[in-house]
Amino acid sequence: MSNPPRVTQLLAAVREGEEGSFDRLFEVVYEDLKLRAHYQLSASSPTLNTTGLLHEAYLKLAGAETPDWSDGQHFFRVAARAMRQIVIDRARRHLSQKRGGGRAAVDLDAVQVGADAVADRMVALDQALSRLSEQDPRLAEVVELRFFGGLSVDETAKTLGISARTVKRDWRLARAFLQGHLG
């Protein structure tokens, strides 16, 4: 984990488009969010509050009292990406453990349960989202921010510097695209 000043600097670097700064910020935010998710989930009645996580992480890492959207913009983009990575990492790990080691086949018509089914669907979503990103990066980011980052339409609009109406339109096309790929 890093000290707040470093994140502020990184944010400034991202804002100025310095090379590699997005990746460095991503690393910091990824670790921080992973830890925070850990705590939320380790409570006696585990919950996962993505929106809360992101805002908390922002306040803490960027050392800001209220989100300044010029920095928040970059931060939430990074954070939503990190959240996506955390969930997908977990899903892949689940799947790779499941399928490890030359074991006998599983019954083909047993219903996939709970974590299995979710892990499969998450990995599929991740792949579909990557394809969407090749086609139209902004649509993919709208999904990342809203689904993985838990941001509202307005927050998403501010973060991407587009209108709320555009976010809604993007969302609808992205959703249809993903549905088609996941179907």
Partner: peptide, 8 residues
Amino acid sequence: LEELALPL
């Protein structure tokens, strides 16, 4: 995501 990823 909250409800989906929770079982995971």
